[in-house]
Amino acid sequence: MGRTSKDKRDIFYRLAKEQGWRARSAFKLLQAEETFHLLGGLTRAVDLCAAPGSWSQVLAKHMYEPLPLEEREKVKIIAVDLQGMAPIEGVTQLRADISKESTAEAIIDFFGGEKAQIVVSDGAPDSTGMHDFDAYVQGELLLSALSISTFILEEGGSFVSKIYRADRTSRLYTHLKRFFKDVCVFKPSASRNSSIEAFVVARQFCLPEGYKPCNLITEWHEHPDSWVCRKKENPPVVHVPFVAYKGDLDSDRTYDLGEDYVYKEPVQQPLTAAYQDILKKTSQVNIKYEGIRVMHDEELFKEWYKAGVCLSSCDNNGYKNTTN
């Protein structure tokens, strides 16, 4: 696919470069903010699985940049990821694993002992093409983001995370309802209709009475009485609230480019993409095989056949022969 053809096909990809966003995903959080008004007046935010940093850019744009210089130091935004990313003014980076309690402690230390007012996560696993497996892994990633949020999110805080609309959506929704009074699934127009991607928007965080923050993925090992989904003959039907963003731009539509259009490179390329280690390793390994040359010479074949030669496989010259 050519450069301009991708710009024609995806309006948000083109606008992200024109407006200075590091990825088109910035519009998904922008549309969530426009719909739910999540960032107004906040001073402490956490961006999980942040690289390459488009959501951190949105946080800084709404929380940090509008303030006068003397008040900007009150705003604390931390971006957490195992991968590195280029610096963003007003955003502190932490390269750490979101499934570890030490990461939660480091975030609270960054806030000076306070907790975050909002936690966002646009993390997603590498797609395998096996939809059931991809949806399962995405659900586990969401639970990891929710787990650390129970440590670092203050009472009344908000949580936004990517989710795949699949058979586990209702179970994940039930998990979220344990900790948030208001939960819905949001579909921004920047997310293609053909994609099962959506986002959970959870507000009014409140820990259940007597609940101790823990890893929700392995919670049932130590607390079997806290299982959310117990097997029943007639399990209750869970209706998940769904909100769609109404916008003029359609991510599935192809838009014409004007005569004065000039192609622009992406704002920020990955610094430490996961595939770089694989490229480094495979560059030192020869995984190519020499081709096998097959000769088709009827006269030669007839001579060998008369001589009683059985053709079994090919050698470097085209044939490897065994005599009867």
Rank of each mutant, 00 (worst) to 15 (best):
I98C: 03
E155S: 13
R293C: 03
L143R: 07
L172S: 04
V267E: 05
A273F: 07
D10I: 00
E105K: 12
R178D: 09
F36N: 08
S149Q: 02
L141S: 06
E33M: 05
N321G: 13
A86T: 04
L15N: 00
D7F: 00
P236R: 07
L143H: 06
Q117C: 10
V267W: 06
N321C: 15
P213D: 13
N215Q: 05
K280A: 07
L257S: 03
F27T: 07
F186R: 07
L94A: 02
K74S: 14
S191A: 15
V91K: 04
L176E: 03
T174I: 01
I217E: 11
E219C: 09
S121K: 14
P208I: 12
A26Y: 02
F110A: 06
T169G: 11
L15T: 01
E105M: 10
E18S: 07
Y263H: 11
R95L: 15
F180K: 00
I118N: 04
T323W: 09
Q19C: 08
V228G: 06
E89L: 10
E89H: 05
C184K: 08
C206D: 04
Q57G: 04
I163H: 01
G157Y: 05
G156N: 01
P241I: 10
V58R: 01
L176F: 05
D297E: 11
H221F: 08
D315I: 09
S312E: 11
I278S: 14
F301R: 14
L29V: 10
T4S: 00
S251G: 02
C229M: 13
V160P: 02
K231C: 15
R3G: 15
K320D: 12
